[in-house]
Every structure is written in structure tokens, then in C-alpha cells.
Design a protein around this nucleic acid. Sequence first.
DNA 1: CATGCTTCTGTGAGCGTTCACAGTAGAGAA
DNA 2: TTCTCTACTGTGAACGCTCACAGAAGCATG
Lengths: 343, 343
Amino acid sequence: MTMHSTGGRRKPPTIHDVAREAGVSRGTVSRVLNGGHYVSPSAQEAVNAAIRRTGYVVNRHARSLITGRSDSVGFLLTEPQERFFEDPNFNVLLRGCTQALATHDIPLLLMLAGTEDERRRITRYITAGHVDGVLLVSSHSGDPVAEQLREAGVPLVACGKPIGLGSKVSYVAADDRDGARDMVRHLLSLGRRRIGVVTGPLDTPGGVERLAGYREVLTEGGIEIDERLIVSGDYSRSSGEAGAERLLAQVPDMDAVFVASDLMAQGVLAVVQRSGRRVPEDVAVGGFDDSPAATATSPELTTIRQPWDRISAEMVRVLLAQIGGEDPAAVILPTELVKRRST
Amino acid sequence: MTMHSTGGRRKPPTIHDVAREAGVSRGTVSRVLNGGHYVSPSAQEAVNAAIRRTGYVVNRHARSLITGRSDSVGFLLTEPQERFFEDPNFNVLLRGCTQALATHDIPLLLMLAGTEDERRRITRYITAGHVDGVLLVSSHSGDPVAEQLREAGVPLVACGKPIGLGSKVSYVAADDRDGARDMVRHLLSLGRRRIGVVTGPLDTPGGVERLAGYREVLTEGGIEIDERLIVSGDYSRSSGEAGAERLLAQVPDMDAVFVASDLMAQGVLAVVQRSGRRVPEDVAVGGFDDSPAATATSPELTTIRQPWDRISAEMVRVLLAQIGGEDPAAVILPTELVKRRST
DNA sequence: CATGCTTCTGTGAGCGTTCACAGTAGAGAA
DNA sequence: TTCTCTACTGTGAACGCTCACAGAAGCATG
């Protein structure tokens, strides 16, 4: 038994120490460290034993210096901080990505670009090559960051389809239109006919697609679209409240509403209930996301589940593939209707 | 005008290129990069111009290899993922820390230790020296991570006082007891006399202190403590609901309740209102944190503001000082009563 | 004029890896 | 035997930076 860690901060063992301890050369140790091809089983074993005995861990800086990779990726969120504070979806995504990256031993650098200044600083940091790639979360259009990074040749995967970049940028998204269709069909199946909608921001593909799904299903069901039943929000809770107020004012006998995010649905729920209407008896409310917010309401929210765990896993997979030299790819994942008490 | 960034990924300029361009030596460039002491103004200027012309950015790996520092810090959260998903305080803290670190050009590595496995992996990563220090968020006691890191000599700053480590570990915290006192005094000043409390977890200093403040003020006010008015929670929303149910069952004519976190207060609010009682007329509800959750309720929550921006700034400051060789320090920051509609 | 001090500059070494290359040993084929 | 091929191993040379050191230049002091 050798001491692995002594309290004091002494010089950590290097690959050289391991090589000496194992009675082999640096090269062999390095080969074991990187997959173990072209290494005899006996050497393999000796090296592993020596690593265990010495408590050796690779010096990532030395490795990066020569490989040119940093073996780290950035998680870039270009949203105002209020959005980051109120929407737990970001947390879910963040958690999923760190987890997926951990299996590859890749640390995640958190980059929050709330202001213009930060955006610049972070862009500079990324294009300087300090990370191998970027997981981008930015719902809004006209966001120049994606374009800048793409031009700089930085591997990039967006969460949700970015606008205006065509097929040049990888992205992973849920099937927004299909999810919306499921929800509206569900509301129809409950006998509701005056179904309102609070859309997401209409300068984002997600917002547009979810609205399209709503229109399609109503039309297919032979129901005429009433434009007074359509209001738009920005995914925030307060915009849900505002939307619900307008809907109730314009169509007091609305009997259901499809809300394009759970957070907005929280706001809708509050306003509807405050108006004296019962949910779901008088007005059924359906959300979108299945975020942690969906079960924090009363009644709990019927919603469309976005498969966050798969989304984050795919984002990481696609990003690593791209870092490895593969072409950009688009991944669309199916959603699922989750029935709870609000419908 | 020279091209700074060409689309393709070509070899980035090194310190050598800058030196040649500026007509000086590597050493001089390096000195300019690191504070510019012992450099003549003319050389200074030439180097800066050359840096601008070549678009040079330092290779952090090469630097780290020789300095032994990584110039990055970890943000370690050892909470179950449900807590991370539902409590926006983490987001606020995260944002504050990235921001404070950005001014020092230090990236933040996000480390979420939800499971035992992750905890081990992350501890290994940290003790391997891959980060210079750690910002630790872990409310719960018996958390072995802090102790392990301290033993390994890793610079560490906790958010909130860690238990069982005495003065060995730096921490930054709000003045919990004083905040609790303010709130209970406020409730008394409204004429409330049957004031309940939903505490935080009593194996954390925060939980204990806030309860102590409650007891002190009531005693000072000559009000006998009724143990049926004291229930404990774990900061989660659902524990707030459970707490409120128990309180209302035990003391139906309770006229106010001090809740040790805004999230729990959300739960309390929901249960109290569902029971047919009006807030604040029948029952006044006071929270703690002034988290984004506090303004998402109806009525909005009177609460005790924790100065999150200062807390995160101080955490970073203390951590960097400690990395710089200073001794551990404890910082206690004042809180503030924020009056809203719930009282 | 020598001496010391301060301010500034260049140079070589080395941080801990990986990578390319050269080389060895052993097995099988000619 | 001799040659080729495969499986494996060791070695020197980078990677781009900082640091310690040595030395130069300028200026005041003895």
C-alpha cells in the first residue's frame, strides 16, 4: 500500500513516473491511456497497476497543448437573465448535457450571455479556440452569435432550429408541430370547440410550428379558425397571464386553451382561475414542455413532453461527432402527450 | 488592414509571431501579456499593436502547463436534481458567479453532483487539479465533499456555512437569523399573534438560524412559543405544502406564517388559499430569499432578500484570494425585508 | 573612472504530454 | 535459411508558453 494523497500539495506524478514504476517507456503509458492499441496485455496490466499505485492522472493542459483540442465544450445561453431565472427547462437541459458529457470525461463551461458585452467577450473566447465546440441555446432569431460561430468554423449544435442559417448548423429539436397537433386533438376529443391558443414568439420556428399544428388540427376537424382565439406570447409566465386576459376578454366562453409553454400555462391557469372559471370544468388548459413547472400547478398541467434527456444526449452526440469531423446534422425527436388534471 | 480571421481553421499565431511582428523577444511579449511591468512604453505599444494586427490570443494550455494553474474554477452543486430543477435561486447564484468570474477572465466549469457516482467522479476531477478552486453549493450536512476537498488542499468557498468543518472552510452567507427576526417582527407589527413557521432543514445552519430568529423575536415580544406552530421543511415547494397542511390542522386560527424559503412559501400560499382562507387578510405569509419565485405568486410574496449579487461576488472574491494564498475567510452579508402583498 | 543601482531586454530551459519514426522480436511463408 | 509481415516498444522532437538568469544601457554616486 502506497499513499495516494498526502494532505499537502506535492508535485503530482507524471507519465514519466508511471513509466518508471511500470518498467516501460512513456510511449507505452501514453498508448494505454489512449485506448490501449498496440500494447501487450502484460504491459497494459503493468501500466494500469502503476497508475493505481501512483495515483496518476493525466495533465490535460500538456495533452491539449499538443493535440490542439481542449477536451471541453461550452454551453452558451443567449437569453436575458430573467428568462434563465424563471424557466426550469434550462436547468433540465443543463443537467442533461453535463451528464452526457461526463460519460466522455468532458467538462462543460457555462457561458451566460445576457448582455451585448458578454456576448462579445464570449464569442471572442470561443473563437480563440478555448473550447472544442458549443452547445447553443438561443430561442430568438436575429441572434448573430450562431452565425459568427459558424463562420469561424466552430463546431456548433443548437437546441431548436435556428433561423436563417439553413442547413449549415446542426440542431436538435422536438417535433413541435406534431406535439401541438396531439394536444389540440386531445382537447377536441374532450368535446371542446372554442379552443384558444397562446403561441410562442412567432420569430422562432418553435413558436411558428406549434401554432401551425393548432391550425391544422382545427381545420381538419372542420372547425373554423377564429383569429380572436389566437394570441402570442414569449414563453414567459407573465406573457401567459397577459394572453389569457386578452383571450377571456375577446371570447368569454372559450372552453379550452392550448398554451405553447408550461411557464405561460402557469400564468394562464392563474388568470383563468382568478376570473372565477374552473379548470378543467369550464376551461381546459394544455401546456407544452412538460417542464418541472407542469407539476407545480394546481391542478397539475396536461402537457406535451419534450424528451429533454434525449434532446441533451443527442446534442452532445451530434456535437462530438462534428468535433470529430462529421458534417452538421439535424435531429427531430418525437413528443408525447402527458395527461394530468388540467384537461 | 490585415485579415484577422479567415474562414478556414488555420494555425493561430503564437507569442513568437507577435514577437517577430513587434520586433521584440518572446519574453517582452509575455511581460506585456502579464501586467506589463518592466516594459518600456515603446515596447509596450509595439507589442499591443502587433497583437491587434495578428489577432493573437494566448494559448491557455501552454500557459497552464508551466504555471500549474488552470485559470478556471468549478461550480459544484451537490443537490439532488429535483432541487436544482425547481429552485431558481441556483440560477441566480450561477449567473452571479459567472459574471463575477468573467471580469477576471476565468471560465466556470459546471459540476452537478446529483448521484453518488457523479460525486466521486467530480471529486476525482477536482483533486486532480483540473480547476484552481471550487465554489460549493450544498445545503445539506454530512456532505463529505467539502471535507474531502479541504483535506486535498483545494481552495474552496461554500455558499452558506458548512457544518462540522469549523473555521477551516471559507464561506459566504446571508445573516439568516437577523433576516428571520426582521420578518417575524414585521408580522408582529401587523398585529398577528398566532404566527406559524415552516423551517428549513434543521441539519443546516440556515434552517437552524432562521428558526432561532423566529423564537427570539416572539420571546422578546412576550409571546409564548407554541410548538404546534413549528413544522420543518426541506426548502422544497412540496414540503411547504405539507407544512401548511399540518399547521392549519393543528392551529386552524393561525393568522400568519413565516416560511424559511420562497419556494416553500409558494406551497404554503397554495394550501392556505385552497383551504378557503384569504392571504393576507386571514393569514399573512412571509417568505425568505427574494428568489424569482417570490413575484410569481398571487399575491406577490413579502420576503427577506438575500443579496445574491453580493453573495456571488464575495464568493468569487474570497475564492480568488484563497487561490492567491490567503487564508480562509467567512463573510456574512445583511438581508433586507421586502414588503409585498402577501402580508 | 570605477561602482552600484535601476530599468529594461533577450535567451535557454523546461512544463507533461503526444506523435512520428525507428527499431526489435517473433511467426509464418518462400 | 531468408525474407516479409505483424505486434509491440522506445526515443527525440515538438506543442506555446513562463520563468530564472544574464546581460545591456542609463544614470547617479563615490
